[in-house]
């Protein structure tokens, strides 16, 4: 069975630097695939290139359809949800407005699901997103992606900069998400990855250097070689 998302030979140039140098990766349908790698190896760039947020070259297929030439909004309307690295909630808009904006035309928004996962969003509906704490903003960013039914979620470092208690909260939410959805997750916290991921893909210097089951992370030598010391969790 072909993978839900097939990426072949993906290249991205930023100015004079060749950031992605032919990334090949597959995301199977169902569950979470974790995209790992040291800082600056191109994880975020990969997600953004998949979404068409930066000029890219190569082949990207979603369910067999080539999407590498499409505009961002068209790609997203095919059923891609995106939780960006720095949350990127709209600070001047209220929580309600942030959510409302994310509802795609002609789709039933899953407000029940989102409010069930993040009851706080309901209470704080009229508050400006810019006045929320980092953790609350992360809830808006994840909630906004989950409002729609997605074929694939792209989630970029959802636990970055969060307090340990919040990291556990986010992990719990993602665990629930993984039961019913497919996600490509960029994550530095290996404990979270071990708990959530069904497969791991490791990126180094713009290329995929390792693919395998999450149990590979038990191999300390491998982790040390591919991810550096700071990552052993």
């Amino acid at each position: 069975m072909p993978a839900l998302l097939e990426v072949r030979d993906l290249h991205v140039h930023l100015g004079e630097s060749h950031v992605l140098q032919g990334v090949d990766l597959d995301v199977p349908a169902g569950g979470i695939t974790a995209l790992l790698g040291r800082n600056g190896v191109g994880k975020t760039t990969t997600l953004r290139a998949l979404l068409g947020l930066m000029p890219r070259r190569g082949s990207v297929r979603l369910d067999g359809d080539a999407i590498e030439r499409e505009a961002t909004h068209r790609i997203v309307l095919r059923g891609l949800g995106y939780v960006p690295e720095d949350r990127d909630v709209f600070a001047g808009l209220t929580v309600d407005e942030n959510l409302k904006l994310a509802v795609r035309d002609g789709e039933d928004a899953r407000y029940d699901l989102v409010y069930d996962l993040f009851p706080e969003l309901k209470q704080r509906g009229r508050q400006r997103a810019g006045t929320l704490s980092g953790g609350q903003q992360q809830m808006v960013a994840i909630g906004r992606a989950l409002l729609n039914r997605n074929r694939l979620l792209l989630i970029d470092e959802p636990t970055k900069g969060l307090a340990p208690a919040l990291v556990a909260d986010v992990a719990r939410v993602l665990e629930r998400v993984a039961e019913s959805e497919t996600a490509l997750l960029v994550e530095q916290n290996l404990a979270v990855v071990r708990r959530l991921a069904g497969a791991i893909v490791v990126l180094d210097q713009g290329r995929v250097v390792h693919t395998g089951p999450p149990t590979d992370l038990d191999d300390e030598a491998l982790v040390h070689r591919l991810l550096g010391v700071g990552h052993a969790a």
Binding site: G52, L53, P55, P84
Partner: peptide, 8 residues
Amino acid sequence: PRLEGEGL
């Protein structure tokens, strides 16, 4: 803006 180059 934090995200650049929307591929439109």
